[in-house]
Design a protein around this nucleic acid. Structure first.
Lengths: 335, 335
DNA sequence: TCTTGTTCTGTAATCGTTTGCAGGGAAGCG
DNA sequence: CGCTTCCCTGCAAACGATTACAGAACAAGA
């Protein structure tokens, strides 16, 4: 009976045609005569034939797979980007192979492995800390970076990080804050650097003071946000408004302050970055800069597909707009 | 030069042996003579040869891929399970293909598609709402369910959901609560049902009353938690302690109450389920039931690999322990 | 010397598709 | 009626590996 899965040969035999015709019926139906096409489709129906992707890929010299390399699968920030990627790749018949750069030994090595192994038609790279030299492989499949980036030549999808920082600073300034601080992401990360720069530029454009001790180092995590809260408390002169480079840090920051009996925004105004889902469910709701993460994924996937199919691209980098979300965690400074 | 990627033929030619020998050098080195082995390895080195996975898989009638089917990629709850899966599958040379059951049209159809398409050597199923009939496919690859489950025959990894509920109820009762309510997950979901049942059983075991209106329907999301807060506020007689079937709902619940000026745990004690990262960063810290999600992923992957390799399994289901985490969101009821 | 066994290697078939090429037949045209 | 053109279809060669089988070389034992 069904002891074996049907192959194209079985279909061909039953339909009384050659395997070539069956294949063509599936790939370009327009070139086969209507009557044969129907016979073939009937035979496919009765046999329950499903095309063997491995064989097809071997013959067509492709893999039907794109690899998504991210620094940390467990970080929920990426899950929505994955959703965006999947929404484009799945309909285009590409599978998404997910790999974690942190789990293996050497991340650069791992990238090189995937680029040379021929296991993928393309790579989506979400980790900007790899070295650009790792991409120096002749004949490698196309690579698109998303969120983070490494250089100006590799195609990438980014958000307006500097503008987001400026929006945050402008908002705090408009509320009356003159002493504004910042909690950064990890050093060396392009996002951290770009947002910090945007923060600095916005301050000086507004003629506001910037003290070194008002820039507290974090690493995007909730824990580092809680640590930043303790650092802020320990300051002699505390900024009244704070822009944190990620919502996760803002959550940790506010939580730590509240557990110590302080109140946001009465004691300090807080602005985050990302607009993760929880931002509007917190109390107070977290003022933040929205990054359309699904859209980032969608655009990155579209760019990659275009590179795979045509090898061409309109522009090397695509900039995605951010949007400011004012909520209750920011208010006028205490007098 | 490097215009083409080297094949096993190139290696064979350079090493002066047949392709069979090259293949053997790679798969079982012990059967080839030491001198030839070294010559082959040298040739591999100079050509930069990498085995073509597609061709190898075609010949060996496997795919080197397992498919992970989950209800919603964007849900951060799953990302840590994915991390656990990856930590086992990647070292075992399996790729992880991620697919979303909600994105496509008919989830059952989608599962059937993956089971018959021969695109995977195994399937990890994280969605228990599919119909068990969808697994009724002769010769299908092995399937392991994780977190949720559908029947007693399909291998699965679960946590002690009923016990978790009992721990939550016991904790509240010990604090002095006599009126305890519950916010459920979506109806039809096994986790919702099992936790609800555990909740009911625990109440009656303790001789505590259960009113129907104290069971509020949710769907695991933060939004539904906020909605539950409004429903709780609208009750004539409100339970003083509440067990919510997910931390996300607890977050939404507490946030909504706090924004309306109420205080947790003074006005109501809250216990969640999952112990997501944010639980300990909230203010007050969220009392909850910990599910070791990485471990769930690890065990599910190990079971699947064992099924793929040997077709055997020790037991059909594996139960993972939960752990109660008392924090500040629960306290003695208001007098 | 002949037989037997061991160890290593090569030949060639095979996995299930896709696709360039060529041929058969019908239709159109002069 | 002959020639060209156009559809449609089949033949057969790939794609790049794995592996059953057989054969070669050599050593050891009788």
């Amino acid at each position: 009976m069904d002891r074996k899965v049907a192959t194209i040969q079985d279909v061909a035999r039953i339909a009384g045609v050659s395997t070539a015709t069956v294949s063509r019926t599936l790939s370009k139906p327009s070139v086969v005569a209507r009557s044969t096409r129907e016979a073939v489709l009937d035979a496919i129906e009765t046999t329950g034939y499903r095309i063997n992707a491995t064989a097809s890929n071997l013959r067509r010299q492709r893999t039907g797979t794109v690899i998504v390399l991210l620094p940390d699968i467990a970080n929920p920030f990426f899950s929505q980007i994955l959703a965006g990627l999947a929404s484009v790749l799945t309909p285009a018949q590409y599978g998404m192979l997910i790999a974690d750069t942190q789990s293996g030994p050497d991340p650069d090595e791992q990238l090189a492995h995937y680029l040379t192994s021929g296991q993928a038609d393309g790579v989506i790279l979400l980790d900007g800390t790899l070295s650009p030299r790792a991409l120096d492989i002749p004949g490698r499949p196309p690579v698109v970076m998303a969120c983070e980036w490494m250089d100006t030549t590799t195609p990438s999808v980014r958000v307006e990080n500097a503008r987001g920082a400026a929006l945050a600073v402008g908002h705090l300034a408009r509320l009356g804050h003159r002493h504004i601080g910042h909690v950064t992401g990890p050093t060396g990360n392009v996002l951290s650097e770009t947002r910090l720069e945007g923060f600095r530029d916005a301050l000086s454009a507004l003629g506001l003071p910037l003290r070194d001790e008002w820039v507290i180092e974090g690493d995007f995590s909730m824990d580092s946000g809680a640590a930043a809260a303790r650092a802020w408390l320990a300051l002699d002169s505390r900024p009244t408004g704070l822009f944190l480079s990620s919502d996760q840090m803002a959550v940790g920051f506010m939580g730590e302050l509240q557990r110590r009996g302080l109140t946001v925004p009465s004691d300090v105004s807080v602005v985050g970055f990302d607009n993760i889902e929880i931002a509007r469910h917190l109390s107070p709701g977290l003022t933040t800069v929205r990054q359309p993460r699904t859209r980032i994924g969608v655009r990155a996937a579209e760019m990659l597909l275009s590179l795979i199919d045509t090898g061409l691209l309109e522009g090397p980098t695509e900039m995605i707009e951010v949007e400011f979300m004012a909520r209750e965690s920011s208010a006028a400074p205490p007098r």
